[in-house]
């Protein structure tokens, strides 16, 4: 199962990113586990300096912006 993590200390953009990614995964029929990472130590482990960030199976895909659904789909497929 794919593991999708959303990194961010609880800003509004983080929830937007989580929602959009959930929709993208659902439309692609991907069965994924979603984790919201709000602990700063966990966030820094990924070397991310601008939140929100999207991490798929341990790899940072996006940081510092909220891509649209189509872009997220492309990221999840690659």
């Amino acid at each position: 199962m794919m593991k999708i993590e959303i990194l961010g200390m609880g800003c509004q953009k983080c929830s937007t990113l989580l929602e959009t990614t959930k929709q993208a995964a659902e439309e692609l029929g991907i069965n994924a586990e979603f984790v919201k990472v709000e602990n700063i130590k966990e966030i820094m482990k990924y070397g991310v300096m601008s939140t929100p960030a999207l991490v798929v199976d341990g790899v940072v895909k996006v940081s510092g912006k909220v891509p649209n659904k189509e872009e997220i789909k492309a990221l999840l497929n690659s």
Binding site: M9, C14, I40, M49, S50, T51, G64
Partner: peptide, 17 residues
């Protein structure tokens, strides 16, 4: 540099570290 106060902490830690 793009900056949003919600990123202040990761930026601070990243810089100092």
């Amino acid at each position: 540099t793009p900056f949003c106060s919600c990123s202040a902490v990761p930026v601070f830690i990243g810089f100092v570290e």
